[in-house]
Design a binder for these strands. Structure first.
Lengths: 244, 244
DNA sequence: GCCGATTTGTCCGTATGTATC
DNA sequence: CGATACATACGGACAAATCGG
């Protein structure tokens, strides 16, 4: 459910671009036309369009217009710039996700873990290790740490489905911000075993570490995602600010 | 040189956050205060702040205020969401960059290359292979393809310095948009030789493929950057739009 | 629980500047 | 030169969330 007018316009334009209602490399209707189309102010139109710019869907050109530069993302591509759960990403790509919980335990954060996760030492936390499948192929091992204080009531059953769905829908939690770091690391025996990798073929893998904050600005999740290298693909769109 | 009022405010707030003038986890001055401070309208302040949000510097909370959630990025971290040349990134991290041109040639795009780069078949292009050093350590091999039509006059000498500087300052070209895809690929003999890698230790590496468009919406650059895995680090900030 | 003050979120209208055609 | 299109900036109005009394 779109929550606001500019969000409605944004989603509508996005859908039209994705469904080729505007030809690639062609101009979108001008702001004035869009104002009439959606019966709104110029600011509102511009807000919607500026989101399409950061999404890499369009490019604005002063004096000329707004060009559609959208190109469909290949399947299995993750998109950066937004927070998306494994399940959401899979569904968006038309795949069948499944999850196996390898470890579910409650722990107390010690100094070593505190340095790695950013959680305060002594805090209570859930540690969850999960294997994610796409169409029955094991692709990702996730090591999740959730601060218990912020995410009470997590169970193994929830972890088998969607933790984010539980946090947002049941706990009414707003997940706001996530810092992610991508690196390449050597594979471990656990990776080799569960992802069915051969270390002679691939001896390292893509690792995404993410630090996620809730709407109170509290770091409540640290996750390390270890991706099968041959299926790892992250996509990003960058905008160069003139004269930066 | 900041080009606009909101850009000035954005840069000033950013600097203050980075230099700890606002304590971490604390609130920034309210919009009303900022309006007085910078003698401007509310929209202008909000525009500056919203850029800090996408940068992951602050988090806005309706009814509460704007919290500083900035954490300094470790050195050698690249930042996503913006286009930055190797040279710029190195300087930002206080390192000494240098570049060695391995190959500089002019080519005609054939079908195979057209599929890879997105350039039309038959187009003229520069192919440049470069080795990038940070503090005398070889870190990245870049394979650049530039459409000659869009980037006339490229020379080996320019490639040894900064191509982007040439494009922006000399050709007055506006680089606007770049789509990037990160993957993990097996290392090649060229990688092994120039990056001084041992395939028994690391047999794959981080690869960033980027498709860059100019202000006319024309794809003028395709680059494949092959990064030493043990020094590769990409950072990103993601915002979850409520109810997405 | 209520109310008012504060703070951010959304939306509108207008004016002016700059680039393109 | 004028018309069109996007960019910047201002001001005002109301809504929604938070907080303190």
């Amino acid at each position: 459910m779109p929550k606001s007018k500019y969000d409605t316009i944004y989603k509508d334009l996005k859908r039209k671009i994705e469904s080729n209602e505007y030809a690639s490399q062609e101009l979108l209707p001008s702001e004035n036309i869009l104002i009439q189309t959606y019966d709104c102010s110029r600011n509102t139109v511009r807000r919607a369009v500026s989101r399409l710019v950061t999404d890499g869907y369009v490019q604005t050109m002063q004096g000329k217009g707004v060009r559609n530069i959208y190109q469909p993302t290949p399947q299995t591509a993750f998109t950066l710039g937004e927070i998306e759960s494994f399940r959401e990403s899979a569904i968006r790509n038309g795949r069948v996700p499944s999850t196996k919980v390898l470890v579910f335990m409650e722990i107390t954060v010690n100094d070593s873990l505190s340095g790695k996760t950013g959680f305060p030492a002594g805090a209570e936390a859930y540690y969850i290790q999960r294997l994610h499948f796409l169409d029955d192929m094991p692709l990702i091992i996730n090591h999740n740490y959730f601060r218990k204080e912020c995410t009470p009531g997590l169970t193994k059953e929830i972890a088998e489905n969607s933790i984010y769905q539980y946090l947002e829908q049941d706990l009414r939690m707003a997940i706001v911000n996530s810092r992610r770091v991508m690196t390449v690391e050597k594979i471990t025996e656990i990776d080799e075993k569960y992802l069915e990798l051969n270390s002679e073929e691939y001896n390292c893998m893509a690792v995404v570490s993410s630090y996620t904050y809730n709407s109170d600005g509290i770091l409540f999740e640290f996750t390390q995602s270890r991706h099968r290298p041959d299926y790892f693909r992250f996509q990003d769109n960058a905008v160069r600010r003139s004269g930066a």
